[in-house]
Design a protein around this nucleic acid. Sequence first.
DNA 1: GCCATTTCTAACCTTTTGGTGGGTATGGTT
DNA 2: AACCATACCCACCAAAAGGTTAGAAATGGC
Lengths: 126, 126
Amino acid sequence: MANQPITSYSTAPEVDALVNDLIGRVADKWTLLVLEQLEEGGEQRFGALARAVPGISQKMLTQTLRAMERDGLVIRTVHPVIPPHVDYRLTTLGHSLGEAFCGVWHWAEANLAAVQRSRSAFDARD
Amino acid sequence: MANQPITSYSTAPEVDALVNDLIGRVADKWTLLVLEQLEEGGEQRFGALARAVPGISQKMLTQTLRAMERDGLVIRTVHPVIPPHVDYRLTTLGHSLGEAFCGVWHWAEANLAAVQRSRSAFDARD
DNA sequence: GCCATTTCTAACCTTTTGGTGGGTATGGTT
DNA sequence: AACCATACCCACCAAAAGGTTAGAAATGGC
């Protein structure tokens, strides 16, 4: 960890590709919503998430949570009781991703109106 | 524009939805790659972009650039000559989006290894 | 004994996405 | 006269994403 440039911006092309893939994976619509919900709601169970995230199907929630768990973003805790009880919470990594997305989030909030204006203008020209 | 909280974090649910949609739109794989290429290469024409963005099809490039133009992220300049000559460059808005994505970009770069480790561990357990 | 509960899987089917190949315009080159 | 170059558009097809439904599994309450 000694003699390297601080943050090599766009290092090797294959690393670039991996980074792009990772962003693509992680910038998924449902992942974003689940991430947000876990950030503001803390640890919660499957059913709560399903209710909190508007419009998600059970299948997508399961799928999204599995992928997030695989990527090390959430921890899944199974309490072996009947009926099943499963909790999900963010890891440090997951939390740091949430913070990284703040910039985009703020951008979207701050520029939503501008984008909408641009769209109207675009759609209005013949 | 007078009496509101500075930056209402997650204001109304319908604004939330719009912001989410916008992020979803903008966090698209091809949009990200084109954005990156336009950031580092500056203004350039269609063919150059097609060559620079690895693996993009003509259709996707056209589609992506159109969407970005509609959202006010790029400006499309047509030089009415034969054969056609069209230049694309980022707007201020587009550039600011690029900066907003830096956080995610850095996160992905910094945590790529951690994610890969997590995946291996996940896949290895029976 | 039967039903409700909770999470998750598997089947099926629809919608969306994206690639390919063909077509268009037009003036300069061969 | 045929052809090339450039930036598209359009029609078609394959693949992937995602919704819906059914059901498994185990057990405490009726």
